[in-house]
């Protein structure tokens, strides 16, 4: 996961590079009010497929159309940012990863910091040529309810619940470790260092020799944790997008 997190000087230096596309995941009104020059806007709602209470990943064709309309093709280096401690950017990058994208990074600080430091801003929407995107689904990035049920008693899999301790106490998937996503954030950055992340994960019995499945309520904070695990060098990480919203509503699934 080299160069996954990039800092503000890196963005300022590379924002005009050919083949690089900055993606702003904030609300459209906030984006139009001022964004990093050259960035395109993809509101988080376009990255989710919500049915009832449950958020799924968007169908491949729909996601490909979203990317194509922003001039993103399979070889674009995508650099995402948001003002929600990375939760929106991480879910977008997770979806890119699921659909086989390889060149991606995330601004390692909240957009508020970029703005607060007085760096250049642009209003309006840049004109970008449409492109074609071909999704190549990597099914081993995703866990379904059936996958989780299959692995409940598998010692080779560790489930990680990224919700708050209060939510965990009110009900969780049996055997899951509680690892609130906020515990992975550093005071001035969106993530602690990979060494600190590995130590925190080990404390919870989350070791790289096991497959890890992370979940929350809607697959947002668990996407943040997904990228923490990837940065920490964990080789087999899945995310359960439908998460505890789906699990908790199903009267047939076991709860603890």
């Amino acid at each position: 996961m080299e160069n996954f997190l990039v800092d503000i000087p890196w963005v300022l230096q590379h924002r005009g590079d050919p083949g690089l596309r900055l993606v702003d995941l904030r609300r459209p009104a906030d984006y139009l009010g001022g964004h990093i020059p050259g960035a395109v806007n993809i509101p988080i709602g376009e990255v989710l497929h919500i049915t009832g209470q449950v958020a799924h990943v968007p169908p491949a064709e729909r996601f490909a159309a979203t990317l194509g309309a922003r001039g993103i093709s399979n070889d674009t280096h995508v650099v995402a940012y948001d003002d929600r401690y990375g939760t929106y950017a991480c879910r977008f990058l997770y979806t890119l990863d699921l659909y086989g994208h390889t060149r991606m990074s995330m601004l390692g600080v909240n957009f508020d910091r970029y703005q607060g430091e007085g760096h250049p801003l642009e209003t309006g929407t840049p004109a970008v040529p449409r492109s074609t995107y071909t999704p190549r689904t990597q099914a081993d990035r995703l866990a379904t309810k059936a996958d989780v049920l299959d692995r409940l008693k598998d010692p080779g899999t560790r489930l990680v619940d990224t919700r708050s301790p209060q939510e965990f106490m009110m009900g969780h998937i049996p055997g899951a470790a509680s690892l609130p996503w906020m515990s992975l954030i550093a005071p001035d950055r969106l993530y602690r260092s990979p060494e600190e992340l590995r130590a925190l994960l080990r404390e919870k019995g989350v070791t790289p020799d096991r497959e890890v499945i992370c979940y929350c309520n809607m697959g947002m904070t668990s996407s943040h944790t997904y990228w923490a695990l990837r940065q920490a060098g964990y080789p087999r990480v899945r995310m359960y997008p439908e998460s505890y919203t789906e699990w908790g509503m199903d009267p047939t699934t076991p709860k603890e």
């Binding site: 609300r27 009104a29 709602g45 929600r84 939760t87 929106y88 919700r163 929350c216």
Partner: peptide
């Protein structure tokens, strides 16, 4: 809170 999703709302 239009445009915001879990956990922010």
């Amino acid at each position: 809170l239009s445009g915001e999703v879990c956990p922010w709302p």
